[in-house]
Computed example of a mutant assay.
Amino acid sequence: MLNIGCHLSISKGFHKAALDAVSIGGNTFQFFTRNPRGGKAKDLDLEDISKLKQIMEEYNFAPLFAHGAYTMNLASDKSHTREFAKMILKDDLERLKVIPNAYYIFHPGSHVGQGSKKGIELIVEALNESIAEDNDTIILLEGMSGKGTEIGRNMEELKTIIDGVKYNKNLGICIDTCHLYSSGYDIVNDLDGVLKRIDNTVGLDRLKAIHLNDSKVEFASNKDRHEVIGQGTIGLESIVKLINHPVLRELPFNLETPNELEGYKEEIALLRRNYK
């Protein structure tokens, strides 16, 4: 079964987002844990979450994707920014104890001129402070396109972070097809080779989730420009091969394409038709 959904708003509640996912043929969805450009999170409504759980059970949902705020930069050169990011991270992990079957996904951070080595050291320090030995939440570092001073532009950087975290049993990665292609991993012409590279560095056992997007930009451009499935430089044929690959086909996928609900419905139907 193809486990697929898209990014949805939870402003009207988790159960409404879950019903929206079902209405477009999805069995998962991604949501922001709080305002993506801010820091405040709404109080959790336990009745709403109970309804969410019922819908997830009824429609055999795959894990949800809980996406951290964009303002979270654990690698900042400013201590107050790092402390703010750690506060968000710790609070999100605490809140996810209540939300059923959700992976926590976040952008590793940007070193803002300090260099990748220093940025990675700061991220590792923050994760060691935030991840307790008894953590049960799957926490995923998102692979990035490599623009600016982003950390996580390659598997080696992600591996260094994971290896530096003491309690890393539930720490893994989420790949984004647009980011991956833009950062120089040729999933169009050499998907098997890319998967081998991931396995030889991070390990395929740590690959838990995929953001499924086409790309507006060329291979190895180090730019982050998502496109509707089949309308970009990755193309429908390559995306179909990816969702059907024996290593990837059982993972949960979520679309982050430039679309509204009806457009997501069309994309999901297209992908389900091509899932073998």
Rank of each mutant, 00 (worst) to 15 (best):
N60I: 00
Y104P: 11
G115I: 06
V165C: 06
N170H: 14
N170W: 07
T160H: 02
F29P: 10
G172D: 03
K166F: 09
A66K: 06
R153Q: 14
L64F: 05
P100D: 10
G113Q: 07
T149G: 03
D92M: 09
T149L: 08
R34T: 03
L96G: 05
D91A: 10
N60W: 00
P36F: 00
F32Y: 14
S79N: 12
T71M: 15
G115F: 05
P100Y: 11
E129Y: 13
A62N: 02
G115R: 09
E47R: 06
E156T: 14
Y103C: 03
S116W: 01
G152R: 05
Y70S: 10
N128E: 06
K53H: 09
N154F: 11
K78P: 01
D45H: 05
R37K: 15
I123H: 06
F32Q: 00
G172V: 02
H111W: 11
G113T: 09
Y59W: 05
I162S: 06
K169E: 15
I49R: 04
A85Y: 07
I131N: 00
I88K: 12
T81K: 12
D77G: 13
P63W: 10
K53I: 01
D43I: 12
A66F: 07
K147N: 12
K169H: 13
D43A: 14
D48C: 00
F65G: 00
T81W: 10
G109R: 02
L141D: 05
S76K: 04
Y70N: 09
M155G: 04
I162R: 00
T137Y: 03
K78R: 15
E142K: 01
F106K: 04
E157L: 04
G143N: 15
L64M: 02
L96N: 05
M72A: 05
A85D: 03
S130K: 08
Q114D: 13
M56E: 04
I161V: 14
E133Y: 11
P36G: 01
I138H: 10
E83Q: 13
K169L: 12
L140S: 03
K169W: 01
A126K: 07
G39Q: 10
D48R: 04
K97N: 15
P100N: 09
N135W: 02
Y103T: 01
T28M: 05
K97C: 00
V124D: 07
V124F: 06
E156N: 14
D91H: 09
E133A: 13
K53T: 09
L171P: 10
K90F: 02
F106S: 04
E94D: 12
Y104R: 08
G115N: 06
T149Y: 14
T33Y: 07
S130G: 07
K159E: 14
R34F: 02
Q54V: 13
N60M: 00
M87N: 15
K147E: 13
N135I: 08
M155E: 07
I138V: 14
G152P: 11
Y167F: 15
M72E: 08
G115A: 04
G38Q: 07
L140N: 12
K42Y: 06
S130T: 06
S79R: 14
T149K: 09
P108E: 05
D92F: 10
S110K: 12
G113S: 08
L74D: 07
K51V: 00
K147L: 09
G172C: 08
K117E: 15
G68P: 10
G68C: 08
K166Q: 13
A132P: 00
N170E: 11
Q30C: 11
